[in-house]
Amino acid sequence: MDMQEFIDYCKAGNPISGEDKELHTMLTQCSYEAQRITMELNTSYHSKAEIVEIFRRLTDSDVDDSFMCFPPFYTDFGKNIDIGKNVFFNTGCSFQDRGGIYIGDGALIGMNVNIATLNHGFTPETRSTTYAAPVYIGQHAWIGTAATILPGVTIGDHAVVGAGAVVTKDVPENTVVAGVPAKVVKEINEDS
């Protein structure tokens, strides 16, 4: 398997066993590449255009010129992040993206937001296997400071995730969720 085949394997959501040495070697190579690129991003000043270019290299995709990020930013894989237009990442975000993170146009990601897309098996026999489940963030969603979004969650369009929330299940569009675990606390309408 070459590196592109491995990245495609990961993007397809396949699990990776801790016993599979070949896949772990390739995963480690991707992780080191993501560390190298994010270290470059995080350790010196860059213009907005330079940050967009760094994210293009990190994600190996065509990140729109409208994208903004205030470093530092952290990720463990880098190749499975899809960023829409007019998206903003505030400082300190940490993404575990091997399972896929898809961010819609106009989304705002607050300071110190954590997004996870992997989980380990529950039984001792499967504990070293990681299982992927993508996270989808809808258009114009707003993820508040220090929120954590867990694997397999979809945040609906125009939804708001309150600061410090732990999101364990899907968030309907046009709602506000808050708490641990996050629950709907308000619907957003024109009078909100």
Rank of each mutant, 00 (worst) to 15 (best):
M1T: 12
M1E: 13
D2W: 08
F6Q: 12
F6A: 11
F6E: 09
I7H: 09
C10L: 08
K11P: 00
K11Y: 00
A12S: 15
G13Y: 00
G13L: 00
N14E: 11
N14D: 04
K21F: 12
K21R: 12
L23Y: 13
H24I: 07
T25W: 00
M26D: 08
L27M: 11
L27Q: 01
L27K: 07
L27H: 02
T28P: 00
T28L: 15
S31E: 08
E33G: 08
A34P: 09
Q35L: 10
S44F: 08
S44Y: 12
E50Y: 03
E53M: 11
E53Q: 15
I54R: 10
L58F: 11
D60Y: 05
D62W: 12
D62C: 14
V63N: 14
D65V: 06
S66C: 11
M68Q: 03
C69Q: 01
P72W: 04
P72Y: 10
F73L: 02
Y74V: 09
T75W: 03
D76A: 07
G78Q: 12
K79P: 05
I81P: 04
D82G: 00
D82S: 14
I83M: 12
G84V: 09
G84M: 11
K85G: 02
T91D: 02
G92Q: 09
D97Q: 14
R98Y: 03
R98K: 10
G99L: 01
G100E: 12
Y102E: 06
I103A: 05
G104M: 10
A107W: 03
I109K: 03
G110D: 00
G110N: 01
M111W: 00
V113D: 03
N114Y: 00
N114V: 03
N114C: 05
N114I: 03
N114W: 01
A116Q: 09
T117R: 01
T117L: 03
H120M: 03
G121V: 01
G121P: 01
P124D: 07
P124F: 11
P124L: 08
P124Y: 12
P124H: 04
R127Y: 03
S128Y: 07
S128C: 06
S128L: 12
T129K: 08
Y131M: 04
Y131G: 07
A132L: 11
V135C: 06
I137K: 03
I137M: 07
I137G: 08
H140M: 00
T145E: 10
A146T: 13
T148H: 05
I149W: 01
I149N: 06
P151G: 00
G152W: 02
G152R: 02
V153M: 06
I155E: 04
G156F: 04
D157N: 14
D157Q: 07
H158F: 13
H158V: 02
H158K: 13
V160S: 03
V160Q: 04
V166M: 04
K169M: 02
K169S: 13
T175Y: 05
T175Q: 09
G179K: 09
P181L: 05
A182G: 13
V184L: 10
V185M: 09
V185P: 10
K186G: 14
E187N: 15
I188T: 14
I188F: 10
N189S: 15
D191R: 13
S192M: 15
